Simulated assay, not measured.
Amino acid sequence: MRCKPLLLVDVDGVISLFGFTMDSCPTGSWHQIDGVAHLLSGEAAEHLLDLMSVYELVWCTGWEERADEHLPTLLGLPRLPWLSFDRNPGKGNAHWKLAAIDAHCGDRPAAWLDDALDAGCEEWARERSARGAPTLLVRTRPEVGLTRTERDTLHAWAAQLQT
C-alpha cells in the first residue's frame, strides 16, 4: 500500500483568519490563544477532516507545537505532528519554513497549504517536482482561509497521484 501524500498545514491565514473588516467578518468563532484573539474559521476543520482521507496532515506553522496543543480541542481535529523551524535559514531569499519542510518530506509527495507562499517557495516546489517528488503549493486568502475551492484542488491533485 502506498503512503498518503503529506499535507503541510499553516494556521494563520488558513485556519486563524485575519485581514477582514468587522462589517465583513467571516463565519467562525473567536478564541483567546496564549493571550491573543484569533477568529478560527467556521469551515476549515471540516475540510481538514475530509482531506485526512487522502493526506497525512502535519502542522507547518510558526505556532509549532502550540497548534497541536490548542487546535484539536477547539476545532474537533485529531492531534497531528508538527514541524519546528529555524527562524534564520541563512539561504538568502529562502522562505523560513523550507529547510524544515524539506527535511521532513524527503521525496514523498507533498502539498503545502499557506497564505504566505513566495517566489522561493515556488522555485523549491518546481525543483522538488522535477526531481520526482510531486509538490503542490496551495495559497489561501487570509481573510477567508481554507475553503471548498482549496479542498477540491487538493483532492484533485491527490487523485492525480494515484493514476
Rank of each mutant, 00 (worst) to 15 (best):
T140N: 06
S16P: 13
L75M: 09
D10A: 04
S129I: 02
A158V: 06
Q162L: 02
L113N: 06
I101Y: 03
M22H: 12
L71I: 03
G90L: 01
G132D: 12
H95Y: 06
A111T: 08
E56G: 12
E64M: 14
S29C: 07
C25I: 09
T153G: 00
A67W: 11
H38G: 11
P89Q: 01
T61P: 01
E56C: 02
Y55Q: 05
T135N: 10
V144M: 03
D68C: 10
V138M: 00
A44N: 09
D50V: 09
G76I: 00
G145E: 03
N93Q: 08
R151N: 11
R87V: 06
V9I: 04
W63M: 00
R148H: 15
G13H: 06
A130I: 01
G42A: 07
D50W: 03
T21V: 07
Q32L: 12
W124V: 10
T153C: 10
S24F: 07
R79N: 06
P78R: 08
I101S: 04
P134Q: 08
W157N: 15
V144K: 10
K97F: 00
R126Q: 14
F85Q: 00
T21C: 12
G120D: 02
G92R: 00
P89C: 09
G120P: 08
E127C: 11
R131A: 09
E46D: 11
G92A: 00
G62C: 05
D10L: 01
G42C: 05
D34L: 13
R151V: 15
A45L: 03
G76F: 03
E43Y: 11
P5T: 06
D118N: 14
S24L: 13
W124P: 08
C105K: 05
L49A: 11
E46W: 10
M52G: 11
A133Q: 13
K97A: 01
G120M: 02
E123I: 03
A100P: 05
V54I: 04
S129D: 08
L71T: 04
L6M: 03
C25Y: 01
T140Y: 03
G106K: 14
G62P: 00
A156P: 07
V14P: 05
D107N: 15
S29F: 05
